[in-house]
């Protein structure tokens, strides 16, 4: 473990908590893409299949359970409890356009052709594009609540910090994983225009408005 990866995990945990708090305290999931949340739940499910078979550390197991529980709790809040506030009309991204290519690529480019490894690779490719429905929804509505932009900033920062972690691990222990690293770069690049808007607008107290 290094401070970059710990920082990344904490940013990820913060994002998940911000989202749950936003939905719970405002009793509304307006502006949140349920489709992205479905992709995140799918990502954690495919990635943590070895939760009970491959013990790494208490921290690792606890975080996996927290991520899985939070992902499914968010789906419950969005599609059951506060279903009436879910904005179907603006959350229209076709999930099959993301799931099928990620699954196909995972069967072709992976570290090892085994169930666990292919599912892990699928989760890596899927996570890279999982935020697209959310970013698409923000571009369609043209704006986002500030709490939602804090959520996106924390979520985007998590994988950016993981990239720093991979660079650090390459130079400190010669470790590298081209699949996770390249997918992580794609994932982080998708946030770039949002990061720009967040830093130039939201941090100055303005609302996040996308140029129409």
């Amino acid at each position: 473990m290094n401070i970059f990866r710990l920082g990344g995990d904490l940013a990820h945990l913060l994002a998940i908590i911000i989202l749950l708090l936003k939905i719970w305290t405002t009793r509304s999931c307006a502006g949140i893409s349920g489709k992205s949340q479905i992709l995140f739940a799918l990502t954690f499910t495919a990635r943590y299949l070895d939760l009970f078979t491959n013990f790494v550390s208490v921290y690792n197991s606890v975080m996996k359970v927290v991520y899985l529980a939070a992902a499914y709790a968010t789906l419950y809040l969005m599609y059951v409890k506060f279903k009436a506030t879910y904005d179907h009309n603006h959350d229209t991204f076709r999930l099959e356009f993301l799931i099928l290519p990620a699954a196909g690529l995972a069967l072709i480019i992976n570290h090892e052709f085994s169930i666990i490894e292919v599912m892990w690779t699928f989760s890596i490719y899927l996570e890279a594009v999982a935020i697209l429905p959310q970013l698409f929804m923000v571009s369609k509505t043209g704006e986002a609540e500030s709490i939602t932009s804090h959520y996106l900033f924390a979520l985007g920062s998590y994988r950016a910090l993981y990239i720093v972690n991979w660079v650090y691990r390459y130079y400190s222990e010669g470790f590298y994983d081209m699949i996770a690293t390249l997918a992580g770069v794609v994932q982080t690049v998708l946030y770039c225009d949002f990061f720009y808007l967040y830093i130039t607008k939201v941090l100055k107290g303005k609302k996040l408005q996308l140029p129409a």
């Binding site: 473990m1 690792n60 993981y162 994983d177």
Partner: peptide, 10 residues
């Protein structure tokens, strides 16, 4: 050449 998966990462 693709390296290998980090089993300790989330």
């Amino acid at each position: 050449e693709l390296g290998f998966r980090a089993k300790d990462e989330l």
